[in-house]
Amino acid sequence: MSPGGIDLETSLGYLLKEASSALRTAMEEVLRPLGMNVTRYSCLELLSQRPGLSSSELARGAFVTRQSMNVLLQALEREGFVTRPAEAPVGKVLPTQLTPLGRANLEKATVAVRSVEVRMLSGMTEAEQTGAFRILQSMIHSLRAESDGA
């Protein structure tokens, strides 16, 4: 262990960050040939599951800044992957929708990303996978509950 620090060999937080980085790298590798990256894929996937999200909601869901999401949405709109109204129907929110082209590209990307997830879980039994999901969900819940003041 480093003086005054944590032992990276036994730090669960460090191991989770390392796993996250490895997952992102593997996803980027399979998405690149499709003209996508993880952020673009995340945005399209979020819109597929929750049509009409605002750019702020998309930014939170894709773990990027609002400014980065606005730049991405402008590019996706130019490329014909999403549509947004010229004016907000209510308030300032411009609800974003996938186009058929966006949906078709998302389907290809989803197959690629799923192959990475299958590879990531290939060394685990079904029971171990279930346990890992449960443990990760519990960690997320505990950290969010603490930051929400619960």
Results as ranks from 00 to 15, higher is better:
8 L>Q: 09
8 L>S: 12
10 T>P: 01
11 S>P: 06
12 L>A: 04
15 L>S: 13
20 S>M: 02
20 S>R: 06
20 S>L: 09
21 S>Y: 07
23 L>H: 05
25 T>N: 08
28 E>G: 04
30 V>A: 13
31 L>C: 14
32 R>G: 10
36 M>W: 06
39 T>R: 07
41 Y>S: 02
42 S>L: 04
43 C>I: 08
50 R>M: 09
52 G>M: 04
53 L>D: 10
54 S>A: 15
55 S>Q: 15
56 S>V: 07
57 E>P: 05
63 F>H: 11
63 F>A: 14
64 V>P: 00
64 V>T: 12
65 T>D: 03
67 Q>C: 03
68 S>D: 04
72 L>H: 00
73 L>V: 00
74 Q>D: 04
76 L>P: 01
76 L>I: 02
78 R>W: 08
79 E>Y: 01
85 P>R: 10
86 A>K: 10
88 A>R: 01
88 A>D: 07
91 G>A: 11
93 V>I: 14
96 T>F: 03
97 Q>C: 04
98 L>V: 10
99 T>E: 05
99 T>A: 02
99 T>D: 08
100 P>S: 02
101 L>D: 08
104 A>W: 03
104 A>E: 13
109 A>S: 14
116 V>F: 00
116 V>D: 06
117 E>Q: 09
119 R>K: 11
121 L>E: 07
125 T>Y: 05
133 F>D: 10
133 F>W: 10
134 R>V: 10
138 S>L: 07
141 H>M: 10
143 L>I: 12
143 L>N: 11
144 R>Q: 13
144 R>N: 15
